[in-house]
Design a protein around this nucleic acid. Structure first.
Length: 234
DNA sequence: CGATTTTGACCAGCGC
DNA sequence: GCGCTGGTCAAAATCG
């Protein structure tokens, strides 16, 4: 082999060696950068850029009790003034609609609900509840009204136990609140000249005068009804 | 920028 | 033991 050939081979070898070192150096830099940004429990394996999964603490999570239904009055009471935090969503088998999980945000309320849409009839939303709550909400927000139970006549019956507890005073508050809500939505209240007005009946039902509750539902004044078979006996 | 939602990892239980 | 399923956790992303 001529000296020229030897030199060429040496140069090629040297070139690839340098490139190799350069690449390796970049890799080290990347590893260090990654290491600096990672959390303290993350394991770093020296010069390798391969991330190792952080070792989980071997704490056994207590599995929560299986789903337990609430009574009707518990559900009525619960919707009254509580807020919900979503904590999960999962695909439902054989359904394009996911199931969502919510937890009551109040400290006095240890209740969860799950909400899913019927695959066969997407207009149907099923809400089921589980858990306990300790004392009534002092406030009367919109949800207090919307937690009422829809009947077949396009009206809403406010939660019975709520009314029995607070009776007339809260009933007035409730109606006034609803009037304000309706007004803010541009919905004429007790205006018989309007084709789409709302009134309270003597049974304290909120009624839409033109025989449909679509408007009320569209604005959240009618909410999902908990199916009776999903309520445990009181 | 804090609150809320999204999302993939994780876990326990169950059936095979 | 293994895979599947329903449910939870928590970091990241998004929202107001």
């Amino acid at each position: 082999m001529s000296k020229l050939a030897c030199d060429c081979i040496f140069l090629l070898f040297f070139f690839f060696m340098v490139v190799g070192v350069k690449l390796q150096f970049s890799k080290v830099n990347f590893s260090i950068e990654w290491f600096m940004g990672c959390e303290e429990h993350t394991i770093w394996d020296g010069l390798s850029s391969i991330k190792l999964k952080p070792k989980k603490t071997n704490q056994k999570r207590q599995r929560e009790p299986r789903f337990a239904f609430m009574t009707k009055s518990e559900v009525d009471h619960l919707e009254d003034g509580y807020r919900w935090r979503k904590y999960g969503q999962k695909a439902v088998k054989n359904s394009p609609f996911p199931r969502s999980y919510y937890r009551c945000t109040s400290v006095s309320c240890n209740v969860k609900k799950r909400v899913e849409r019927s695959f066969t009839d997407p207009s149907v939303v099923v809400t089921t509840y589980e858990g306990q709550h300790t004392h009534p909400s002092p406030v009367m927000p919109r949800s207090g009204v919307s937690a009422g139970y829809a009947n077949n006549f396009g009206s809403v019956l406010p939660p019975g136990n709520y009314l029995s507890q607070y009776q007339h005073y809260h009933h007035q508050q409730q109606q006034q609140h609803l009037v304000n809500t309706l007004s803010s939505l541009g919905f004429p209240y007790n205006d018989s000249s309007s084709p789409k007005n709302a009134v309270f009946t003597q049974e304290r039902r909120l009624c839409s005068n033109h025989g449909t509750n679509a408007f009320l539902r569209d604005h959240g004044l009618l909410q999902d009804v908990v199916p009776s078979h999903m309520l445990k006996e009181e």
